[in-house]
Nucleic acid binder design. Structure first.
Lengths: 94, 94
DNA sequence: AATTTATGGTTTATATTATAAACTAGTTTA
DNA sequence: TAAACTAGTTTATAATATAAACCATAAATT
């Protein structure tokens, strides 16, 4: 009971990002920003953290002349998310 | 999708405390401390916060000659916990 | 052509939170 | 009677989240 919750995932915005990415192949910065109702600054920081932990991969390219940041969840990220959910359920199921 | 998570509950220790209290009539400080593997200092602070929000009620008395702090979840706390769980599930169910 | 506005972010500063360490007050044990 | 223990609280510090300010380029406006 009450195993530690991965602090990287136990954050509203990072959890929302992971939740989003787990159900799509990839998503770009603007899309994630809209879906999560986050500010660009906050999202930028949180994407960096998830990326540094290798929970997601980030690819920077251009769409026409505009920069495009594309995110994907990694295998490590999927595993971490699934583990987090299992532990979290111990807290919320009664 | 991605409604805000009550920041008072989206904290590992406070969530553990609430999770514990929701399934018992009452619990004292030491019991909660053991069950949640927390330090007394941290637990004291977090109990105060839950108490100030009126998510729990705190009663200070004596067991023999030793101080005894007894905590109970309130109706407001039960409601907040239940709401939190509903919103959280939107993040973790795919 | 030069200023303004928009896009797609990053960096930095600040507010909030969590945690640990130190402290209080009294009790039990050696 | 001194040391160690119980049951906490308070305070200081470290970590985190968030907001505000900034940067570079592109597109639109005057």
């Amino acid at each position: 009971m009450f195993k530690d919750l991965d602090p990287l995932l136990h954050s509203q915005l990072r959890l929302a990002v992971m939740s989003l990415l787990i159900s799509v192949d990839s998503a770009d910065f603007t899309f994630i920003k809209e879906k999560t109702h986050s500010t660009a600054g906050n999202l930028s920081v949180q994407i960096d953290k998830l990326s540094e932990a290798e929970y997601i991969s980030v690819e920077k390219s251009f769409k026409g002349k505009k920069p495009l940041t594309t995110c994907r969840i990694t295998k490590k990220g999927i595993k971490a998310f699934e583990d987090y959910v299992i532990i979290l359920k111990q807290y919320i199921n009664k």
